[in-house]
Design a protein around this nucleic acid. Structure first.
Ligand SMILES: [Mn+2]
Ligand SMILES: [Mn+2]
Ligand SMILES: [Zn+2]
Ligand SMILES: [Zn+2]
Lengths: 135, 135
DNA sequence: ATCTAACATTAGAACAATTCTAAGTCAAGA
DNA sequence: TCTTGACTTAGAATTGTTCTAATGTTAGAT
């Protein structure tokens, strides 16, 4: 889904399109490395010196609630974010702390709405290990 | 794997079996609710008033490194732990913050050693949603 | 049995990530 | 123009985790 489409969807749903929100979403669009909040905040601060950490947190939560971005809890104690919301596996290297996409795998839960009586809203298939660069 | 077997394995591998380590492992053996560090610490403190938070953290890390327990990063910002190490799906209810086991699912990655050139060391298949009780 | 060196535990300080607060800014409608 | 509600800001507060330095315990050597 393109950046324009996501911005349009936000707008349609009645959400104010502030310059900060545009900047956060655009940053995620351009940086597909699954950045942390810190990375997003300091990168945006370079071009946009008055942006505050609270706004970055608020915006990421808002975009996540609208289903336009994805929160990743693969690394203990800190959040990563992903522009891509289509479910896919993530690989975390505990040596270099990078998060990689793993596109290949087909998940047997894909499309399922319920499991054990619980309502499925999001799949987060994570894999931990040592990445190809670190091996 | 029984508690006795895990304690024996620890001992064989040359790890000192202190009363605190025994208590942490036993707590996880008896409480299969995927407790947080806080829950473990305060529960142990009731029977064992001098145990310190640092020891609980150290012990959980040690047991995890020996592969005798499993760390769960499904909830943002805090760790849960599991006595069961055999890979299985976890379901997190974002309404009541409980972590449930989901036994049914067969993972296509089970047994795989490598993916995209990365070395797989652990699978963490997580599902987010609303649990049966909260629905 | 005693000594000793390595290892483990403790309390609390330090740290890092996130959330909260209160004041200031902005924009749209009356 | 004025009002109202929504958004942003800086920094304080809170939460979860790690570090530190002092103390306690263990196991092997004597
Ligand atoms: Mn991704
Ligand atoms: Mn489990
Ligand atoms: Zn790596
Ligand atoms: Zn629930």
């Amino acid at each position: 889904m393109s950046l324009k489409e996501k911005l349009a969807e936000l707008n349609e749903k009645g959400c104010t399109l502030t310059i900060q929100r545009h900047a956060v979403l655009e940053y995620l669009y351009e940086n597909r490395t699954h950045p942390t909040v810190e990375e997003i905040y300091y990168s945006l601060k370079e071009k946009f010196s008055t942006i505050s950490k609270a706004t970055v947190y608020n915006t990421l939560e808002l975009l996540n609630n609208y289903g336009l971005i994805q929160e990743i809890t693969i690394e203990k104690g800190k959040l990563h974010f992903d522009y891509e919301v289509k479910p896919h596996h993530h690989f975390f290297c505990h040596r270099c702390n990078h998060v990689y996409d793993v596109d290949v795998v087909e998940c047997p839960l894909a499309g399922k709405k319920m499991i054990d009586g619980h309502k499925i809203e999001e799949l987060r298939p994570y894999i931990i290990g040592t990445c190809s660069k670190c091996l």
